[in-house]
Nucleic acid binder design. Sequence first.
DNA 1: ATAGGGTTAG
Length: 656
Amino acid sequence: MQMQRVAFSLRVPCSHSVLSMRAIPVSKLKCKALQPFSRPCSHMPNVAESPPSTLVQQFTKFCYQRDLPRAMIAMEAMQRRGLWADSVVYSELVKCCLARRAVQQGKLVHKHVFSNGYQPKTFLINVFINMYVKFALLEEAQELFDEMPERNVVSWTTMISAYSNVKFNRKALEFLVLMLREGVSPNSFTYSSVLRACNGLSNLKQLHCCIFKAGLESDIFVRSALIDVYSKLGELHNALGVFNEMVSGDLVVWNSIIGAFAQNSDGDEALNLFKRMKRAGFSAEDATLTSVLRACTVLALLELGRQVHVHAVKYGQDLILNNALLDMYCKCGSLEDANSVFTRMEKKDVISWSTMIAGLAQNGFSQEALRLFEQMKLSEVKPNYITLLGVLFACSHAGLLEDGWYYFQNMKQLFGIDPGREHYGCVIDLLGRAGKLDEAARLIQEMEGEPDAVTWRTLLGACRVHRNVDLAAYAAKQILKTDPDDAGTYILLSNIYANSQRWEDVTEVRKSMKARGVIKEPGCSWIEVNKQIHAFILGDDSHPQIDEINRQLSLLIDRLMAVGYIPDTNFVLQDLEGEQREVSLLSHSEKLAIVFGLMSLSKGKTVRIRKNLRICGDCHVFAKLVAKIEERSIVIRDPIRYHHFQDGVCSCGDYW
DNA sequence: ATAGGGTTAG
């Protein structure tokens, strides 16, 4: 190879035909010369006439100054005279193109470097592969990768991370295998990229072994990726194991583990870890706060959530953080706060809109949800799969049969979204609520693919409300096929039988439940008072003020009965162990939590309660009446629905 | 030249 050294780091192309054949077919590159750069302007340097060394020096200077227009002119002049610069200089120029998202200029640089059959070093080809990946031009990146004579660990890793970022998981894993076959050893960069493409436990375990063998398990990038993937597969125990092996401490790894528990709905553990993190001397940043908010959301801790909001303010318009805040206020039942966050958000993405629409719908503000959807249609943001779920949920909640059916039938045509299992679920709920149980059942049969337990549970709920015992039994049977230990189904079914006075069937259900050893989770309600969480569990009287609470409860019941409250004993069967009717009804945890809330919260303050089980009909009546005679707003969030009790009515419209 | 953590439904 003949090299003409002109000043520093200047190269001329080699003209060897063998190498030329290896070169990238530049003709394939579609890039037009850009107007501003094709003609020097008056303020531009007259580079065309400079001697070669000066030309390359000037080019280098412009590259380092991040002066893209001048660098492009200098580059064109070099090209006319067959001059090339050093790889590092080109990589600086590519950085500049990336920073300005200058795709066309990037392609011109690529064309220049590869022209006249010049074959750049692996280093520089990697730079261009990375550039195409960052410009989301994966095909160009892949082509460059395929045709390069030698691929090093960076070449492979760049492609693997490109594919795992766009969720082409199989491709990413496949590349790891090919890489190993070519004898290139993965490094910590490779593993942290490929881990994110891992979608099964066996793959993950294999990778984890490789990581150990390579001695890379203590790398913090690898560690946070491992935590992340274990947690996405629901393997919190393993995630925690990886976390606990850490000796040095790292904020992002803390964020990973807190996020892992928050994501898996273990808010308590997420908050514990957050406390530990602070004790270890780390201070929270945006990603941390997002996960802490998620924990507040899960636990319905409005007051703690508000405190986090105060800290979140300094991150201003961080979209993800704002979305988490929005969701926290919605799920804690404070729509006023959610709305004020939403209106103040300068950037709103599909998640912001979907969160707000679903939040309004779940809290019983269906009309507002649909109005917001109309506003969304006028915005730049396109609705997605989840947005439509919120819309259908709003329709079902408000009993808007026609609107819901219209959106369901036309969502493909209007928004390009194929209805999925969850959309069917909403429509089944919609039909069920309207009492059209047969149509709902027919829709299940028409669904593509096997209906799952959630779908059948929706139908079962409708059967309870409309007292269709036979269909209920059928739906329950379907649920128990896939989910044989689902206590909720047994209880719901026994309640439905009890409602129709079919006592033999009730006994039958209870027998089979016992035979299978299905254990009913005890009812539990939580309420936050003065930054403390008070838990009331059925059959547990360990609360320090339990005697006073019980006394106040019976006083309250007396007053309620005076205005016509009759305990609905049908629901006593929700607690299968407690045989005494009214007595066990009185012990339902939400009643205790409501009374405690009335006792300890200042007047006018909303009583907010979170429950682990669906609310029973008797407690629902109880809450409505208490809200009326005590002139108090009560919000109860059960695992599925929100109940806003005010002035004797509930936002759920007595359907849940 | 290549890599990390966070948000929406059920």
